[in-house]
Design a protein around this nucleic acid. Structure first.
Length: 945
RNA sequence: GCUCGGAUGGUGGAAUGGUAGACACGAAGGACUUAAAAUCCUUUGGCUAUUGCAGCUGUGCGGGUUCAAGUCCCGCUCCGAGUACCA
């Protein structure tokens, strides 16, 4: 009897595959459960041990739910569009499709080896035209919709046109980039082209001039979540702000719903918090300022309306359109110089540069409350993209304004009683107001704030502003619209052409998918157009409704197609819906399929997608919900984040100027250089010296100074990467120990959510557990040997303890403790020499989600004809868990003195009596009568003397 | 700066307010073996005992609540993650 995991695992993987064991379809007789993993981007490096962590956890949960009688949808696919494949294509000329397909094959091979219960018949790939058909379709739906604030949902754009025709723009509450006030009459007067331009301002997918994150090295724009600390997430290249005409998604219209929806879903608090911060709701007021010497007006946003008496200057963002309007003649050259300098700086430089800079525009605004004239400045500490791109500066109570005021010698007015602003500003929102007109001494109708608490003063000022028509209460969100164009080849083409007026028109729905054309090279064109600009034979014939391979300038029915492609998150925003009905050529999802499967019950993936994918998906889902395509408003009901698996690097210590290596604990006597060594040559920190000598030619003659005949390596925790030689592929582990050991070990490593370094130091213990399990089944024979005898009480107890623990742990995603529970149970049963069928059969069912291959093998070895997948999860019977005797810890004045065993079910009074009359008690009682006795059933008896 | 986590043996980590350190690794000792591997047994937080069966101490630090605190409350220290000229 030997644990031949290679044979066992191969056998059952082939069996499951051949018998389509994990394929599911809608089944009204069973409750559904949808378990989803974030689908991987198939990179060239293949899967490493960090990837399967979440997959194993969700697979355990899927298998568990299946055994509990649920119809479980557990699909997998690939996020196949992405930058690395394109960059590889630029270098090698190989089409990204080829590399992507190759990588997918490798991923599939690796995944198959681990024994997941995916329904591969539902696989999707985002680069497959049959899939991106529906990405393009959704885009057109967004193009043809606007967001109505009254209905709080997306509505067809035709309804907006109708409203314009009847009442004009002013009374409507619709999400837009710029407010319009035209009347119904004025609307009707407008040309077709003008109307199109106005509608663009309202569409949910719109073409707009926006400030974008431009990364010149990558040659593309990036979304906010793709920029980290002013550098591109991919590659770490500098990013600058640039005004560009781009496709955008009006995500901001959904800000409030995205925020509110968080309360209805079961995600970790930290992830919800991250999204709340990203959405960044802030309540405040918009205040209108008039200029002293010109008719121009502008508004600012503030959360501290109460500080209006402390405004000593105004600041405009350098990119603000107001700069040009408000700059006085004599200051023009200085301001222009400043704005130019600011524009040249990248986002990162601006952040790094904490120096205070700015320029005076030479003009003055009028404080709407006091009537005083206040100077208007330009400075890059004010952002064009947030609020109105202009602020009222209150140096007394805002540290940034304070720094600016001190630098340019502007006055600082304290507004809170007792605060000291001689060294720094007082930013806290607390205290009593001063320095506004005194009650009784104020002019008629002026705003009196003195003596009020800050929150009262804010409320009063808002009210005052609204009454006097000087401003309005306003909620601002940090969440901005998503830029949706990428100047890249390897992405979904926009289903859009530009008509004779240069206006974008959607490709008719029945002509989708609009396929990605071939190009000769994947670089931008010489004229700076995106790579698709090289597709010369790629145009749209609007009369015949098809892609044509010709450019005929004289024929006005042949139009240019959009040359940008969609970003990475386009394909990943609704893939979970497509899994429900993946081969449907008529719709994204059939209504019946979606009614049955609904949203994702459990979503497993990394927390790094908090502000990207997980926001976009929620937005996309809400849009589809508004459009009546799907039935649930939130895509992912419960979300678990697996931690990151870091690399555990190993070092050898070379004695300087020699080829001799000294073991870790002996290195102190020498001058040594630590060198990274491939972790695959190290086991339990002991170096395989032969493998090391063969690793590289220069180590061929290496000498070792060992301890007890072993060379011990040093170690440290780093990111898993090729250059550190610490990448561990799951294949190696599967080859050496088997998939079941890998699965159990990854779970045993620690709590799922926690980031932890990968080390194989404990893997033997898990492997040993499986061997013990086999020993229990086989005894000393070569075939499975189970007895049909009735189990004894202690055997039943051991099993039911396990059922209770494992069921509880799986429900709470505490997989590491359930693996421990299996080990305890097997140790107990081994000690009892128990191989009784009534015990080991349920045990195998419990184990099957964790180690499906060996469980299946033994299940069949016992004579079962069906697969273990069809078994039923065992129920825990509490009556087997009852203790005969209960151990009480008896303590005196809180100190435990002795343990005492009493029969289960002993009455409280009898327990008290027994504790006092116990022979050991006399020592502490010392003849005294106790003041108080506390009996905690099953636990402790505390006697207070 | 702000927000959210975390701190328990040599290591990974267990502990609904109720005997802290489950389980596993590693280490030490032993059995089997010509030997090794494999397997099995014993010990393993620290200190004091160990011809004394036990005692003391102990969950980052300082307080508090409680009969009882790793767990709850207050105040620190350190570490990690996210986010940031957001007005």
């Amino acid at each position: 009897m030997e644990y031949n995991f290679r044979e066992i695992e191969k056998k059952w993987q082939e069996y499951w595959n051949a018998h389509k064991v994990y394929q599911v379809k809608e089944d009204e007789s069973k409750p559904k459960y949808y378990v989803l993993d974030m689908f991987p981007y198939p990179s060239g490096a293949g899967l490493h041990v960090g990837h399967p962590l979440g997959y194993i956890a969700s697979d355990i949960y899927s298998r568990y739910k299946r055994l509990c009688g649920f119809n479980v949808l557990h699909p997998m696919g690939y996020d196949a569009y992405g930058l690395p494949a394109e960059q590889y294509a630029i270098q090698t000329g190989q089409h990204p499709y080829i590399t992507t397909r190759k990588n997918i094959e490798r991923y599939r091979e690796q995944l198959d080896k681990i024994g997941f219960s995916f329904d591969w018949s539902r696989e999707v790939q985002t680069c497959d035209p049959a899939y991106y058909h529906w990405t393009q379709w959704a885009f057109i739906q967004m193009f043809n919709s606007y967001y109505c604030y009254d209905a709080q949902q997306a509505r067809p754009i035709e309804e907006l046109i109708e409203a314009f025709e009847q009442v004009g723009a002013k009374p409507l509450h619709a999400a837009c980039s710029e407010e319009y006030t035209f009347t119904a009459g004025e609307w009707k007067e407008k040309s077709v082209c003008e109307k199109q331009k106005i509608l663009m301002n309202y569409r949910i997918a719109y073409l707009g001039d926006t400030l974008v994150n431009w990364c010149s090295t990558l040659g593309t724009v990036l979304a906010n979540d793709e920029v980290i600390n002013g550098l591109s997430e991919r590659g770490g290249y500098p990013v600058e702000q640039k005004m560009m005409r781009q496709w955008c998604l009006r995500v901001s219209a959904y800000a409030q719903r995205l925020l509110d929806g968080l309360d209805s879903i079961d995600w970790t608090e930290s992830l919800k918090e991250t999204q709340r911060n990203w959405i960044g709701r802030s309540e405040g007021a918009e205040m209108r300022f008039k200029m002293k010497d010109s008719p121009v007006e502008f508004t600012v946003f503030t959360t501290r309306a109460d500080t209006v008496y402390g405004v000593t200057f105004m600041v405009l963002a350098p990119e603000s359109e107001l700069v040009d309007l408000l700059t006085a003649k004599e200051q023009r050259s200085e301001v222009e110089k400043y704005v130019e300098a600011a524009k040249k700086k990248t986002e990162r430089e601006r952040m790094a540069d904490k120096k205070v800079t700015g320029a005076f525009t030479g003009s003055y605004a009028v404080n709407p409350v006091t009537g005083e004239a206040i100077p208007v400045w330009v400075s890059d500490y004010v952002l064009a993209g947030y609020g109105t791109g202009a602020i009222m500066a209150v140096p007394g109570h805002d540290s940034r304004d304070y720094a600016f005021a001190k630098h340019f010698n502007l006055p600082v007015i304290p507004l809170i009683e007792g605060c000291d602003v001689s060294q720094e500003s007082f930013d806290a929102k607390e205290g009593k107001l001063i320095n506004s007109p005194q009650k009784g001494k104020e002019k008629e109708g002026s705003l009196v704030l003195n003596g009020l608490e800050v929150y009262q003063a804010i409320a009063k000022t808002k009210l005052y502003l609204e009454e006097k028509g000087l401003g309005k209460v306003k909620v601002n969100y940090r969440l901005r619209d998503a830029t949706f164009s990428r100047q890249r080849y390897w992405g979904e083409p926009f289903p859009v052409y530009y008509d004779a007026n240069g206006m974008p028109q959607p490709v008719p729905l029945d002509k989708l998918p609009l396929k990605l054309p071939d190009v000769d090279t994947f670089l931008p064109t010489e004229t700076g157009e995106p790579p698709l600009g090289r597709a010369e034979k790629w145009a749209w014939d609007s009369v015949n409704g098809q892609v044509v391979e010709t450019w005929r300038i004289d024929n006005i029915t042949i139009f240019a197609l959009e040359r940008n492609t969609m970003p990475g998150f386009a394909g990943s925003s609704a893939y979970y819906i497509r899994y429900e009905n993946p081969r449907n050529g008529k719709a994204l999802v059939d209504k019946k399929a979606n009614d049955y499967w609904g949203n994702v019950d459990l979503y497993a993936g990394g927390a790094e997608h908090a502000t990207g994918h997980l926001i976009y998906s929620r937005f996309w889902n809400k849009f589809l919900y508004d459009s009546g395509v799907i039935k649930d408003e939130e895509p992912f009901r419960k979300l678990i984040n697996q931690g990151m698996i870091q690399g555990r690097s190993n070092f050898v210590y070379r004695i300087n100027n020699s080829n001799t290596f000294v073991s870790l604990n002996l290195k102190n006597g020498y001058e040594v250089t630590p060198l990274h060594v491939d972790v695959n040559m190290v086991h339990n920190d002991i170096l395989d010296r032969e493998a090391f000598r063969n690793w590289r030619p220069e180590y061929k003659t290496a000498e070792f100074i060992t301890e007890d005949g072993k060379y011990i390596c040093g170690w440290t925790v780093e990111k898993m990467s090729k250059s550190m030689f610490n990448v561990v592929n799951p294949d190696n582990i599967v080859e050496k120990y088997g998939a079941d050991t890998l699965r159990l070990y990854e779970m045993f490593l620690g709590p799922l959510e926690q980031s932890k370094p990968w080390d194989t130091n404990g893997i033997d213990g898990v492997h040993r557990f499986l061997k013990k399990l086999l020993a229990l089944f086989f005894g000393h024979t070569d075939s499975v040997n189970v007895s049909t005898d009735k189990p004894a009480a202690d055997e039943l107890k051991s099993l039911h303890k396990l059922i209770k623990k494992v069921t509880f742990d799986i429900e709470h995603f505490s997989f590491n403790t359930s693996v421990s529970a299996f080990m305890i149970c097997i140790n107990e049963l081994t000690a009892l020499k128990c191989n009784k069928r009534e015990i080991v059969e349920p045990l195998l069912i419990l184990l099957s989600p964790f180690a499906p291959h060996i469980a299946e093998e033994l299940w069949h070895g016992m004579g079962n004809k069906t697969t273990i997948v069809e078994a039923q999860w065992p129920r825990c019977k509490e009556e087997y868990l009852k203790e005969d005797v209960i151990t009480y810890a008896v303590s005196f004045n809180g100190k435990t003195r002795f343990n005492m065993e009493l029969p289960a079910g002993t009455a409280r009074q009898d327990a008290e009596k027994a504790a006092l009359t116990h022979q050991a008690a006399a020592k502490w009682l010392d003849g005294k009568t106790p003041k108080k006795i506390i009996v905690v059933p099953n636990k402790i008896i505390n006697i207070v003397i």
